[in-house]
C-alpha cells in the first residue's frame, strides 16, 4: 500500500436522506445514511438493485440535492458538481464528437494551461492507461474496455480529490474486467484519490476495496461494513480463507427474501 496517504479528499455524509417526487407521490430512494470516506481510501458499495447506490453517488457528485442531511468534502458542503469530485459512468459518457485525446483535453481546458502543456498532459494521461496508440480515434472506434480507460484517463487528468465510479465495468466481459481492475489499482495508487466504487459484483468489491459497505433492500441503508486488510493484488486462491467467508456472508445478505439483521 502507498506510504504517503494524502490529507485531502475526506467525504463526510451526515444523516443524508434523498427523496424523489414521483407521480405516485414522494418516494424515499435513500434512507438516513451516515458515512465517512477517509482520504485516499477505496470503498466498495454493494447492494440489491434499486436500493439507492446510484442515488447516493449522484448526491456526492452534486447531481442530486439532499432532501435532508449534508455532504461535506474536506469540510466544505457539496453544492453541485465540481472537478474535485470525478465521476466514471457505466455508459462511459465520452463525447463522441471528440477523439480520445480530445476527450481528455476537454477537462484540461479549464486549467489555463498552454496548448503544449495541455497536449503533453493529455498524452501522459492516455499513456498511463495504455492508450497512446489510440489517441486520435473516436470513441465509436474503441472497444468498451478502451472507452472506459479513456474515461479514467480523462477523469484523473483533472486531479479529482474524490473518484466516484458507478458500476464502471458492468458492461465489460469477465476478461476485460480483470485487466481493468489491475489498471484501475495502478492508476489509483499513483493519484490516490478517495474512491467510492459501486458494483453488483461481490468478487470485484472484495478484490479491490479497503472497505466494503453493504446496503439493504430499497429504501437503502448501510447494513454492514467489512474492512479488508489483505495485500493487493488479491485473489481468492491466495488471499486466505477469510475472503471466501466474507463473500458467502455478503451473498447471503444480498439474497432477496432474507431480512438482514442490523450490524
Amino acid at each position: 500500500m502507498a506510504d504517503a496517504i494524502p490529507q485531502v479528499g475526506r467525504v463526510e455524509i451526515d444523516d443524508l436522506v434523498i427523496r424523489f417526487n414521483t407521480k405516485q407521490g414522494e418516494m424515499t430512494a435513500l434512507e438516513k445514511t451516515a458515512l465517512t470516506l477517509e482520504p485516499g481510501t477505496f470503498t466498495a458499495l454493494i447492494g440489491p438493485s434499486g436500493c439507492g447506490k446510484s442515488t447516493l453517488m449522484n448526491a456526492i457528485a452534486g447531481f442530486v440535492d439532499p432532501s435532508a442531511g449534508q455532504i461535506r468534502l474536506d469540510g466544505q458542503a457539496v453544492t453541485g458538481p465540481s472537478k474535485d469530485v470525478g465521476v466514471i459512468f457505466q455508459q462511459y459518457a465520452l463525447f463522441p464528437w471528440f477523439t480520445a485525446i480530445g476527450n481528455v483535453r476537454f477537462g484540461l481546458k479549464q486549467m489555463g494551461l498552454s496548448q503544449a502543456e495541455e497536449l503533453e498532459r493529455a498524452h501522459a494521461a492516455l499513456e498511463e492507461v495504455g492508450l497512446s496508440a489510440h489517441a486520435d480515434k473516436f470513441p465509436q472506434q474503441l472497444s468498451g474496455g478502451m472507452k472506459q480507460r479513456v474515461a479514467i484517463a480523462r477523469t484523473f487528468a483533472v486531479g479529482p480529490k474524490v473518484l466516484l465510479m458507478d458500476e464502471p465495468f458492468g458492461a465489460l466481459d469477465a476478461q476485460t474486467r480483470i485487466s481493468m481492475h489491475s489498471l484501475l489499482l495502478d492508476v489509483w495508487q499513483k493519484h490516490r484519490a478517495t474512491v467510492l466504487f459501486v458494483t453488483h459484483d461481490v468478487d470485484e468489491a472484495l478484490l479491490l476495496a479497503d472497505d466494503v459497505r453493504v446496503m439493504s433492500q430499497a429504501p437503502g441503508r448501510l447494513i454492514r461494513h467489512y474492512s479488508m486488510t489483505q495485500q493487493r493484488p488479491r485473489a481468492f486462491s491466495t488471499s486466505g480463507p477469510e475472503l471466501l467467508e466474507i463473500r458467502e456472508e455478503i451473498l447471503g445478505l444480498l439474497r432477496p427474501r432474507e431480512t438482514a439483521n442490523e450490524h
Binding site: 457528485a61 452534486g62 447531481f63 453541485g80 458538481p81 465540481s82 472537478k83 469530485v85 470525478g86 465521476v87 459512468f89 455508459q91 459518457a93 463525447f95 476537454f106 477537462g107 481546458k109 479549464q110 486549467m111 480523462r154 477523469t155 483533472v158 479529482p160
Partner: peptide
C-alpha cells in the same frame, strides 16, 4: 450524462 460528465470535469457553462 454528457452534462454531468462535463460539469464534474469542471467545465464552465460556456464551454
Amino acid at each position: 450524462t454528457y452534462l454531468r460528465a462535463a460539469r464534474s470535469l469542471g467545465a464552465s457553462r460556456f464551454r
